[in-house]
Amino acid sequence: MSATRLLVLGVVRMQGQTHGYRVGRELLSWGTETWANVKWGSLYHALRKLSQEGKLREFVAEGDEVVDRTSYEITEDGVAEIHRLLRRGLTRRDDPALLFASVTLMCSLPRAEVLDLLGRRLELLEGVAGELDPAEEPRGPEHLGELFGLWRGAVEADLRWTRDLIASLRAGRYTMADDGPDAFGLPPLPGASAPV
């Protein structure tokens, strides 16, 4: 649910003011049903819950009453929740969907902060890799060694990916929040119209 919360908040923030169908259409165009398990029902549940928590503000926009829909905009608490979820997703390894969502919206943070968060992720992964000693014999059936090999391979791949992303960001790749107002994940510029 954390990934869905982050993605829903992120899309509402990006669009300024929007309704649930537009949020869903945007997220599904990113393929989130595959990598974050986002479903239509979970989107509407997240919108309602985030509104109840004060992270989104519900309102009736012009034309909403004709089609019986509700529109949303993000609150300051919602922006704080985006930042909290991004920081959690980029520094931990217990929620792959949240990591995927966080990478998707990482450009909405300043470059130095993302580098710091990924540095913390790297330290965590290096610690985990240090605990996976290939010389240690697994207890139990002989084939359990294959499981430890899978874990080692996954951690090594995660380490490579994290190091590569850090290098890309240090090289100035991607437009981040402090690079300009057109970074992915930021609200629309004043006077800009949200996509329909």
Rank of each mutant, 00 (worst) to 15 (best):
G149V: 14
G140A: 11
L189P: 04
Q52M: 02
R139P: 02
L124C: 08
G89V: 07
V114R: 03
V12A: 05
L144F: 13
R25H: 05
G16K: 02
L109R: 09
E126I: 10
P187N: 12
V11C: 06
M1Y: 05
D94N: 09
T75C: 02
C107W: 06
P134C: 12
V12E: 02
R170H: 09
W151C: 11
S51C: 03
A112S: 14
P141L: 15
V23G: 03
A183D: 05
G63R: 10
P181N: 08
T75F: 03
G78M: 11
L186I: 11
W40C: 01
G119H: 11
K49S: 05
P134M: 13
E33Q: 11
R173M: 14
V67L: 07
E26C: 03
G180Q: 13
S71F: 01
M176Y: 11
S71Y: 03
R22F: 04
K55H: 15
D64Q: 07
E142K: 15
S108L: 06
R5V: 00
S42C: 03
V11I: 15
K55F: 02
L150F: 13
T70S: 04
Q17H: 09
L47I: 06
L99T: 11
A46S: 10
W161F: 14
G149I: 11
E81W: 04
T104D: 01
L9I: 01
G145D: 04
M176N: 09
P141Y: 09
G20K: 00
P134W: 14
D164E: 15
Q15M: 04
L47R: 02
R163G: 11
G153Q: 12
V8G: 00
E81Y: 06
R69C: 02
L50Y: 00
V23D: 03
A36K: 01
R87L: 02
R48A: 04
W161E: 15
E156H: 11
S168L: 12
